[in-house]
Amino acid sequence: MHVKKSDQLKVLQEIENAIVKEELAVPIYSSHIKVAMFWSGLPQAKQDKIVAGLEILLSESINHVRMLRRVKRIYKRLTLN
């Protein structure tokens, strides 16, 4: 694969940003949203359903982080070596 060095670093930075978002930002937002459900005015049953959905997304997020780390490793191996 022939990619300019600066572009390679840019791609790696973007992957790193995505990892930080998934790994660190998503849990912060979901903890806020879980509590902020109170303000929604929705019935408790609906709120519980949304929170359960959030939990699934949160666990998916952990998978995303693993995948992104793998992508980063593969990309590094293919381009920087």
């Binding site: 940003n17 930080v20 978002k21 660190l24 930002a25 912060i28 937002y29």
Partner: peptide, 9 residues
């Protein structure tokens, strides 16, 4: 630290 993470996003 928590705020810095969200700013980064």
């Amino acid at each position: 630290e928590q705020t810095l993470i969200t700013l980064f996003s």
